[in-house]
Write a protein that binds this DNA or RNA. Structure first.
Lengths: 233, 233
DNA sequence: AAGTGGTCTAGACCACCCT
DNA sequence: GGGTGGTCTAGACCACTTT
């Protein structure tokens, strides 16, 4: 463990195993004494455990074991990570990559001038070799010089990090449903009239620069979107 | 402002307005001096601002203004809060409330014995008076004695807090898509074959006790699900 | 009154970046 | 080497709950 509060966190977690829900933990000052660290360090460890929903603190009473049924917050994950977590083998077929002038709607989403150079990708995402998702991606061309000549069937976020020193940090997403028909139904290999889950994503790097706009259309019979949200913080 | 770090947060935010993205903030020690607080207090304020995506820190270099395009993380919200945020008037029609023995599937979700007493609610949620969502809710009866006699067309989380001292704190959700037909298509007033967004939610209180299992079916032509996720923390 | 978690302080050292 | 944010310390006082 690099840092003390992570080590303390693990120790507390160990000593918690076997305790009933609502059982009290030792008080903070005692934990600090036991692990020979300052109370602040103990508090940082406890704060992380509380954020994950493993313990809860009550002012004036103490800190207690939570029932720990609904656990950690969800993170932004890539298709590749997502499929691996589901026990399926991810795959990608690049359908198209082109540089085009930005249509007004796309320019607005990427906060560029209308007509700016945009990279437009179309990819079919596979799970265990079968079509799972059709995705379109729009990128500001100036942020990714020479992207067309990269291997675009590899995870894109990896290419961004390796070749452009850019790490996607957060994204706002809109999830909706629609009926499939025409070309996309064909690509996903489902009959017209089937349901699809649509995820529109606008992502930024850690500096807050908009780095990607994307639309993913998932087969609803094979995919659902999972997330954990908390109310307070 | 009750606590100093919140006040410092507001002060920093004020002085940031007008700065360009990537402009450096004063260093932490200087901010502490300026606002006559300790560096720890400044750091707590900065940490909150970073979590919200308004600034970013680089070890060894400094703290900088983020472009602030993609903002705060999403929180667990109720239908009522959600509709108000969208500028629509929320409404509820209670269709049914009954106490029944738990079916095995529902019992498993609520982590109760099969056959335990369950409260089952069906509600039609309205936006500006028009059907938006059909929801079914299952609750452990022992946690909500006498719920049947409450006003169940008011926001449920409010009833939970006021009458049962129970605050929903976090939830795991699965979002999927399906085709509407039969009774639910009728209730939502859409033709059979329309697309719907389905949200299945399992919620717990701050102690980690499972307090609710619910399934909400939204008209896809009127609703999308919005969330912001971050990759690291 | 005693005990708990919540906030705040002043200061130290570390890891990392830049020149 | 000098400056930055990241971690940690020892101690203080506060708000709240329980006895």
């Amino acid at each position: 463990m690099q840092v003390k509060h992570e080590w303390v966190r693990e120790e507390i977690l160990q000593n918690m195993s076997g305790l009933e829900p609502d059982a009290p933990l030792p008080q903070e000052r005692e934990l600090a004494e036991r692990y020979q660290v300052s109370r602040s360090t103990v508090r940082q460890a406890l704060k992380n455990l509380a954020t994950e929903g493993r313990i809860y603190a009550v002012r004036g009473r103490g800190t207690f074991v939570a029932s720990q049924r609904i656990s950690k917050d969800s993170r932004l994950t890539s298709f590749t990570e997502d499929m691996i977590a589901r026990g399926q083998r991810p795959g990608t077929r690049l359908l198209q990559v082109e540089q085009v002038p930005a249509a007004p709607e796309i320019a607005a989403k990427l906060e560029l001038e209308s007509g700016s150079a945009i990279l437009h990708l179309e990819r079919l995402r596979l799970a265990d070799g079968f079509p799972m998702c059709f995705e379109e991606i729009w990128l500001p061309a100036h942020m990714y010089p020479g992207l067309q000549h990269q291997d675009l069937e590899r995870p894109l976020y990896g290419v961004f990090a390796a070749s452009y020193n850019l790490r996607i940090d957060r994204a706002e997403q809109q999830i909706s449903a629609q009926i499939l028909k025409g070309r996309i139904a064909d690509l996903l290999n489902v009959p017209p009239g089937s349901a699809a889950l649509v995820v529109v994503r606008r992502s930024s790097d850690e500096k807050g620069r908009i780095a990607e706009y994307a639309k993913s259309i998932y087969r609803a019979d094979r995919y659902d979107f999972q997330l954990t949200v908390s109310r307070s913080g």
